[in-house]
């Protein structure tokens, strides 16, 4: 998995690319989310359009980011979720936990 990020209107946008399956790769996303929190950046959107698939390790990282951000007065929202990942979110009922937007712009606007 590769990871890039940028800021738009005070919201951090994370763009993972590839597969999130566990192992050393997965810690990169976890660490980046927790670095944002440490820097006081508490509004985060993860653009999942370039993630081929993820397993429960990836879902656990999303949950960890979500709960930590919410406990610190922020939030984590998802954008451009692929069909495969949406199916996993549905199976695990996490679709009821995450706010999920069709595009990054709408996800950013939802913070205002």
């Amino acid at each position: 998995m590769k990871l890039s990020s940028h800021e738009e209107g005070g919201v951090m946008i994370l763009e993972p690319k590839g597969k999130i399956m566990g192992g050393p790769d997965a810690t990169v996303l976890h660490d980046q989310l927790h670095d944002f929190i440490g820097q006081g950046k508490k509004k985060v959107v993860i653009d999942l359009s370039k993630v081929e698939w993820m397993n429960s390790t990836g879902l656990g990282i999303l949950i960890s980011g979500l709960t930590t951000l919410r406990h610190n007065g922020g939030d984590l929202k998802l954008a451009r979720v692929t069909e495969k990942i949406e199916s996993l979110l549905t199976i695990t009922k996490l679709i009821t936990v995450f706010e999920n937007y069709d595009n990054v712009e709408d996800a950013i606007k939802s913070f205002s």
Partner: peptide, 10 residues
Amino acid sequence: LKEIGRGVFI
């Protein structure tokens, strides 16, 4: 909201 425990279910 638990971070682990979904693998076998999936």
